[in-house]
């Protein structure tokens, strides 16, 4: 499973792709399964074509956690949550099941999309 993420240009906020729009909560992100790689690519390309809206568009790999999906990499989980030293700062402040699933996930690899981003730079 994959999702697509970026940072919003005007304020730096972490955002996720949902059907052509960028939304702030990981819980509402559009998820793509293995059969939808072409859709992922198309959505990433669509995001990159919006340079005055978002920057650093890439896909992230997801893993099951507490009956939900969470990013595989801890870096992406921190982006989806907020800093772990300030539990009331960032997206995690709202709490709830999605946040708990993110907090308790663990994974074993970086997201392939991010690796590609690093390589490109």
């Amino acid at each position: 499973m994959k999702a697509i993420t970026a940072n919003r240009l005007i304020d730096g906020e972490v955002v996720f792709w949902k059907g052509g729009a960028w939304i702030e909560g990981f819980g509402d992100a559009q998820l793509f399964d293995e059969a939808q790689d072409a859709e992922v690519e198309a959505a990433v390309a669509a995001g990159k074509a919006q340079p005055t809206v978002v920057i650093d568009v890439y896909s992230i790999d997801l893993t099951p956690s507490a009956g939900r999906w969470a990013p595989v990499s801890y870096r992406e989980r921190i982006r989806a949550l907020g800093p772990t030293n300030e539990p009331t700062h960032g997206k995690q402040a709202v709490g709830g099941e999605v946040i708990e699933a993110l907090r308790h996930a663990d994974g074993a690899a970086r997201s392939t999309g991010r690796v590609d981003l690093i390589r490109r730079k």
């Binding site: 940072n7 730096g12 972490v14």
Partner: peptide
């Protein structure tokens, strides 16, 4: 001007 894009914001 000392402005970075970090994980959650600038």
């Amino acid at each position: 001007n000392g402005l970075y894009l970090q994980l959650h914001a600038y």
